[in-house]
Each structure stands twice: as structure tokens, then as C-alpha cells.
Design a protein around this nucleic acid. Structure first.
Lengths: 138, 138
DNA sequence: GGATAAAGTAATCAGATTTGTTACATTCAT
DNA sequence: ATGAATGTAACAAATCTGATTACTTTATCC
């Protein structure tokens, strides 16, 4: 399996959404996610660059949602922290002496693009507000 | 990025489709993919279990498509060799003392399911014959 | 029936990636 | 000034993954 940054990010965003206007320090976020504060801070930087949160230094600092949960799609969260492809391509250049090897990379790239777009379309349908709703229900 | 088994599998299946009725040994497949024959053989086992190919031992042995390329979807190839999820979940159990931590795993699982299904739907639309067509065109 | 060529398989290696950790610099409210 | 927080670099540890070696099993052909 792959990295868990998306899961961490959704978790963090959900906690921030519940906190509303209160700043939430990385130490607290780290506790509920059950990881190290530095891991969280690295994540916060990416969420910040994507314009989803802002952070404050100093006492009473921490992270803060910049938008209402209804206005944040899971696609944005995903792209913020996990900009890679859904699956990997050939690690070594395929043989150029084979008609398939010569062109497969380009064809695979097109398949990748379609897969990425399909995934993005689905994540676009879900917002942070939906996640909160599901958390309430169980 | 993740594993490249899907890319390898599509490559292998495309070569087998071009070979038609001829058996193709793992050594030849390994050459065009540019990897080790054992890597290919491990892949062939999975494709075989999925009912997409059959293999023969002994001299003039190798792998052989079981169906026409029009009847093989990329979804089948993907599921055969890459049955995992599109993204990973929390490596460590989230805190049960936080209302989010207590339920996030289940919610993430639902998100995963939707993402997996969306990906599968897209891959279902493409067949091995489509791949061959694109390989011919460039 | 022996030689040969292939798949099947187990064990291991090497490299890359990723998460977690420590330490420290920087910022800012009080 | 102090203290609490982020930002950040460096590194440790674990995991994953592709590649490799070596061997067994199976089947074909002479």
C-alpha cells in the first residue's frame, strides 16, 4: 500500500472543522492522529500552500480552517497532500527493440491520466461537510 | 509513487496479444519489459489466477492469452495484479479519546470504496484491444 | 529415457520511500 | 524577556518493491 497522507489530512481537516475558530496546535492534532507533531506540521504546510488552512506561530498558535467545510472538497485535500499518480509506470525504460516497448510508456500515460481524472471527479463529489456528517452518524 | 505491476501487466498482455497463438516465454517478456524473468513469472501467475492467460511448461512453453483482446478490460488486468486500495489508511490506530479519531477509520473506508469503484468504472471502459489500437497509432 | 527448456517457488539483496524522531531556529503573544 | 508555537533540517527505523540467485518441477523432443 501507499502513503497515508490523505487519510491524515482528512483527519486533521475534520478536527479543525470541529474546532471552528479556535487554533489547534500540531501537538493536539498529533495526539488524535496518533503520530508525531512534526509529521503533522509537514502536512499543515501542504494544506496551507493549497489555501485550505492558515497557521499561526507563538503562544495560542496552531492551525485554522480558511473555508467552511461545505466549500472544501476531498479532491482539494487529496491534491494538496498527494499529487502523485494512482499507479506507477515502468521503473526501467522498456526495450526499444520491441514494438510494444517502444510505445507503451506513452499509452500508459494516457491510461494514468484517465484514471487520475476519474478519481478526482469522484473526490470532487465529497466535501469536508459530508465527512463531518458521516462522523456524527457513525 | 506505488508499484508498477499494473504497467508491467498491461505491457505483458499487449505483447501476448500481438503474439496471438504463439507461446511467449518469460525470458522474452522480461526483455521487452526490461526486468528479470522471475518478476514476469510472478506476474503471470496472478494473470493466470484471474483467468486471463494460461501457461505451459517445458520446451516451447510460455504464456498465452485465453481471450480475445476485445474481451479483456483494463479493470480485469488491474484487479488481477493490484488488488489493493488507491490510498493507504492510518498506520497506527487513531486516538479513541477524540470524537474524530474514534470513527475516522470507518469513514475513510467508505471514501476508499468510492474511490476504488470510480477507478474500476473508468478502467472497465478500456479493453486490451484499445491498448493495441493506441500502440499502432503512436 | 536422457537432455533440454520452460514455469513454479523460496530466499535474499538492494534501493527507494515513508514515517517517526530529535534538535534547533524562528516567530509572536503576553 | 519568557514561553509556546511553527518551520525546518538531519537522521533513524521500518516497510515496500523490484531484482537476483538458485533450485524444483514439468513437459517436449530426440
Amino acid at each position: 500500500m501507499q502513503n497515508c497522507r490523505f487519510a491524515f489530512a482528512v483527519h486533521v481537516m475534520a478536527v479543525l472543522a470541529l474546532e471552528r475558530a479556535d487554533c489547534c496546535p500540531s501537538s493536539r492534532l498529533a495526539q488524535t492522529v496518533n503520530t508525531n507533531p512534526v509529521v503533522i506540521r509537514r502536512l499543515l504546510i501542504e494544506l496551507q500552500e493549497a489555501g485550505l488552512i492558515s497557521t499561526l506561530r507563538g503562544p495560542h498558535g496552531g492551525a485554522l480552517l480558511k473555508r467552511k467545510p461545505e466549500k472544501v472538497t476531498l479532491r482539494e485535500i487529496h491534491q494538496a497532500v498527494d499529487q502523485g499518480d494512482t499507479f506507477a509506470t515502468h521503473p526501467n525504460e522498456p526495450s526499444s527493440e520491441c514494438p510494444v516497448g517502444r510505445k507503451i510508456t506513452k499509452v500508459m500515460q494516457r491510461i494514468q491520466d484517465r484514471a487520475n481524472r476519474a478519481l478526482a471527479r469522484e473526490l470532487e463529489k465529497m466535501t469536508l461537510a459530508d465527512v463531518l456528517r458521516e462522523l456524527r452518524r457513525g
